[in-house]
Write a protein that binds this DNA or RNA. Structure first.
Lengths: 190, 190
DNA sequence: TGCCGAAGTTTCGGCAACGAAATATTTTTC
DNA sequence: GAAAAATATTTCGTTGCCGAAACTTCGGCA
């Protein structure tokens, strides 16, 4: 092992979250440090990637929400309806209209009334749109790789697998009532 | 082992993210499924907890941002300045004022000009505020426990440890330039 | 054909967040 | 000890999002 993983908590370097959890434990003694630590770190990591996306994507003249919209569109091969995007991006219908408005004004998409169903609108990525998307995409990809790259391939798989099991539980509808356990507390995260 | 973890991918149940990653892999072939899977799942889990918080917290008459503010305040022992909250909650100064306005109107906090430094304002949790916070807190704690509870104690620790290592990398300032690797792509997540 | 409920999209009104500028107060500097 | 710089908070103007309502079009059914 080139730089083995420390075995004991003492020699393991501490991150911001360790301090956070410790602070909260003094207020809420029942808190499970591993649950709280994992949840907090996921929240922070997600926010961090969000910031990177926001900032990196700006170099290509896009805002986060603009990029996300282009990305959603690209994920459908460059053609979709507002309803598709509404579902993919988890947005209110009104918000989709707002986003498309801006993107159309900037020439990244075109909206044309569908000919076979005239209730619908077809949204299509223009060449300019596809280009902006493609360039901005790499910024985020690099940061994801940078962060997850500190883990080896096996560990990445392990992480992904653990999370899958958690998510499967989340996707399950809550199994009813569930008289609260003795220590249902949480310490939260930024 | 009561119900052992499946060894092969084939017998492992698939979650939403597996499909998502697969879809994107057909568009961006270089994508690392484990990186993408992990990131996507963290994003989804964070969002899920956000929704639960939003909804559960509503049962106690609070909105998410109101609860977060009370929570930040409680984390400082029930007394803080707007600047403290601004830092803890990662908010623009203007937003803090807006939030406190609402909470004061509802009787959950009190704002009093500090006597020793008259630029400052002291924000204090009222009894009503503390009560609302404490009750709403349990809702979220229960959901965190429910979700992470599908993992055993050892696995939770493992998850938390893996994430710590990733976060330590994130907390490090980006190590400069980093001429892009060959496959810096990403597939994104809702 | 003519009507009716369902579906797709946009408009409207309101809320919360942000950045920038304004205001008030303290600390520093000469 | 007064002017300048720094700090804390609020006000202002803009933006994006959301829920609800409106409008158009589609599909079925008499």
């Amino acid at each position: 092992m080139t730089r083995a993983t420390p075995r004991t908590a003492a020699e393991r370097p501490r991150d911001w979250t360790d301090g956070h959890v410790e602070r909260w434990r003094s207020v809420l003694p029942h808190l499970d440090p591993d649950v709280e630590g994992a949840v907090t770190r996921m929240s922070k990591l997600t926010r961090h990637l969000g910031r990177v996306r926001e900032q990196g994507v700006a170099d290509y003249g896009l805002q986060k929400h603009e990029f996300d919209t282009l990305h959603g569109l690209a994920g459908r091969g460059g053609r979709a309806t507002p309803s598709d995007l509404r579902a993919d991006l988890n947005l209110a219908p009104a918000s989709v209209t707002g986003r498309l408005e801006g993107l159309e004004r900037r020439g990244f998409i075109v909206r044309t009334p569908s000919s076979d169903d005239r209730r619908r609108v077809d949204v299509e990525l223009t060449e300019a749109g596809r280009l902006a998307w493609r360039q901005a995409l790499d910024v985020v990809g690099r940061e994801e790789q940078r962060m997850l790259g500190v883990l080896g391939p096996v560990e990445r798989r392990q992480l992904s697998d653990l999370l899958r099991r958690v998510l499967l539980a989340a996707e399950q509808p809550v199994p009813e009532a569930k008289a609260g356990p003795a220590h249902p507390e949480t310490g939260w995260h930024a």
